[in-house]
């Protein structure tokens, strides 16, 4: 177990000795990761090394894969979310997720945002919540005149921001993003990155990306994963993004960020 390098111990979520299996196959091994609150952490690494697996472990999204299993602990607000008495649905409300491909509901823009709040028993003014969430997702100005239209009628970039608004609306503490801009063009990508920067003020953000510039530009911390001969992923190096990109401790990290493998 490595010593924590944060000066203060203000962690949003932490994985301890994480081993995640799909059936008999161990996808990642011995992950120890402490993620700081209100910071952006990027998970990088070659394809198949288990970044998405780790990310989904943070809000028990892996539960949806019947064969998956986690050994170890994920501590959220001091509690292991894999304990028996923890309701995974509540975990997912507090730790929201944005997916690689924009996946708005086939409903109106308004309902896309409002639905999550509705089912979670939101008691405030729904119109206000929708507007506020869309504003935070930097989408309000583009859709305020067509809230009744289907979410599917938006462009890819708009759809992704709608998904982010939808996630924000249920007031999570952490937002997990799995390559949220990989299906978008460079301009839409930039807008998402700017958005992520503003969201940082309120939320802890964990983002998986294959885009080195994006990681370098948009994140505060970076975790680099690799996989061994058994194809099991492991954490190679973790630290401030600046340090990782300017002064990597591990040779593999350097090779990866300079594009020599991966």
């Amino acid at each position: 177990m490595s010593t924590p390098f944060f000066s203060n111990g203000d962690y949003a979520i932490e994985m301890r000795n994480g081993n995640i299996y799909y059936g008999n196959f161990r996808a990642v091994r011995n992950i120890n990761l402490q993620l700081k609150a209100r910071q952006i952490t990027a998970l990088i690494g070659p394809s198949g090394c288990g970044k998405s697996t780790v990310l989904r472990a943070f809000n028990r999204m892996n539960d949806l894969v019947p064969t998956s299993r986690l050994e170890g602990e994920v501590l959220f607000q001091g509690k292991n979310i894999y304990e028996k008495d923890v309701d995974p649905v509540e975990v997912r409300r507090r730790i929201g997720m944005v997916f690689q491909k924009p996946n708005p509901f086939p409903k109106s823009i308004y309902e896309n945002v409002a639905w999550g709040a509705k089912i979670n028993g939101f008691k405030g003014n729904m119109d206000e919540l929708v507007e506020q969430s869309l504003r935070q997702a930097a989408l309000w100005d583009e859709v305020k005149d067509k809230l009744k239209q289907s979410g599917l009628s938006l462009s890819g970039g708009q759809q992704q921001r709608l998904c982010i608004a939808r996630t924000i609306a249920v007031k999570p503490e952490i937002i997990l993003m799995d390559e949220p801009a990989s299906a978008l063009d460079p301009i839409a990508t930039l807008r998402i990155e700017e958005l992520i920067q503003t969201l940082k003020e309120k939320y802890t953000i964990i983002i998986v990306t294959h885009n080195m510039q994006q990681a370098a530009r948009a994140s505060d911390y970076t975790a680099f994963f690799n996989m061994d001969e058994d194809r099991a992923g492991y954490l190679v190096e973790y630290g401030r993004t600046n340090d990782i990109f300017t002064n990597p401790q591990n040779e593999l990290t350097e090779q990866y960020i300079t594009g020599r493998f991966g």
């Binding site: 999204m61 949806l64 649905v89 997912r92 929201g96 997916f99 996946n103 979670n120």
Partner: peptide, 14 residues
């Protein structure tokens, strides 16, 4: 599509 289910679970739906 499973993306729809994931979207729903992702915002805390049962």
């Amino acid at each position: 599509p499973s993306s729809l289910r994931q979207a729903s679970y992702g915002i805390g739906a049962t």
